[in-house]
Design a protein around this nucleic acid. Structure first.
Lengths: 220, 220
DNA sequence: ATACTTTCCGAACATTAGTGCGGATATTAT
DNA sequence: ATAATATCCGCACTAATGTTCGGAAAGTAT
């Protein structure tokens, strides 16, 4: 069995990620565009090679009739170690204009059933009231957070100067993620992106909802 | 949310078994014959009902564009006690103008002694040749990456369109992180920050060093 | 019963998506 | 170089597959 060519490896990983994202396999044309291949026949040709190599199952005349054969090539470079992890509930999404998702104060425990995300204790830190949000849209772009990012939040009403927090401007009824600077009667909110400008508000017009503990952006 | 009808339940379980057996979803006609339904339109109708109930994901005008909504995770019976993690070596820092750090090809093994970072296997994915870099300075600001961020890289020389990668412009001898789009003889490099403008280069002037797998920003 | 909603039927229709083929380019072996 | 093989390219063709629509049946509420 020959080693698959570079293009074939790219196709293979494209299929893998496509399935991961969509839960169904790609079409030949999906692969064509995704891997920047000039013709469907080239894709078909390489799929046949991959099938010969036993790396792929292909059913002819069946749309999306692909599945990965070498299913379990687990971790190859490192030994799996078990470490302490915390299960963080994914509470929802942030999007422009939408109310900011927060854990209900009545029952923090009924989060069971929500989707959970395992994160290593070490990188989360010791905080409590941790939850995660998925970002939708580019509304947080000035906080260097883009569509699809996962934001790890910690519920709190006080933050130190300079920390990034979800703050609500009462008078405008808007919520965004900004760096927070309390300056006596005024509060300055500064985007993470230094190319954007800061704004100041009356301190009693600003309400801190949660602080940002971490941002995770998975691109694959 | 109403309870699905008998026929809808049958369709749902058929889809489940079909995927179990084939690793890809059925067509409307597969369902039609499998559930002994007289018309494709009836299947389509009930699929819409199931989608409304939130039990099924359906993508219109996509063949086999079905997936079960209920199960978010593959493994159904595993206990979430300990998770697999990989130790990722922290190879160095990225800064403006500095040569891009890469693992030495001679000895991948002498990374011992380097600082290691434990990351969950699940969020890293199955890739090999993974390493991490710490960002210094704001040189990557247009890729939505700021000072102190941890960038998880995977060594590769080929990336697909749309992926973020570390690319080197040979003629300028510079290296940056950009979204990569191959367009035949030209290659377009697009910042993650949509407020910045894309640039195009001759394809043979662009060398792909690594692709960005993930970005981790810890703020605490 | 009457009206209203849900579900079903069939059959044509429109896209989507896999295949085939002649010939051009690479790549490798002799 | 020459030949042999592996890949790639467009493009047309066709099978696979989702959609639409008028109308019939079945089920529910008034």
């Amino acid at each position: 069995m020959k080693k698959p060519s570079e293009r074939q490896q790219m196709i293979l990983s494209f299929i893998e990620e496509f399935i991961e994202e969509h839960d169904f396999p790609p079409t030949i044309r999906d692969i064509q565009y995704g891997c920047d291949i000039s013709s469907t026949s080239v894709v078909s040709y390489n799929l046949d090679r991959l099938k010969e190599s036993g790396l792929l199952n292909r059913h002819s005349e069946v749309s999306r009739g692909l599945s990965l054969a070498g299913q379990s090539h687990r971790n190859s470079s490192a030994e799996p170690v078990s470490i302490d992890t915390v299960a963080v509930p994914l509470l929802g999404t942030i999007a422009a204009g939408s109310p900011f998702p927060m854990p209900e104060n009545d029952t923090w425990s009924d989060l069971t059933g929500q989707e959970l995300i395992d994160l290593p204790q070490a990188i989360i830190g010791p905080g409590t009231g941790i939850y995660a949000l998925k970002v939708r849209g580019e509304s947080m772009i000035d906080a260097l957070i883009s569509d699809g990012d996962l934001v790890i939040m910690e519920q709190t009403s006080v933050v130190r100067n300079g920390q990034m927090a979800a703050v609500r401007i009462k008078s405008e009824n808007t919520t965004t993620l900004k760096h927070y600077y309390s300056e006596g009667p005024r509060t300055r909110l500064e985007p993470a992106n230094t190319q954007m400008e800061a704004m100041t508000f009356r301190s009693d017009d600003v309400e801190v909802l949660s602080k940002v503990v971490a941002v995770w952006r998975y691109l694959g």
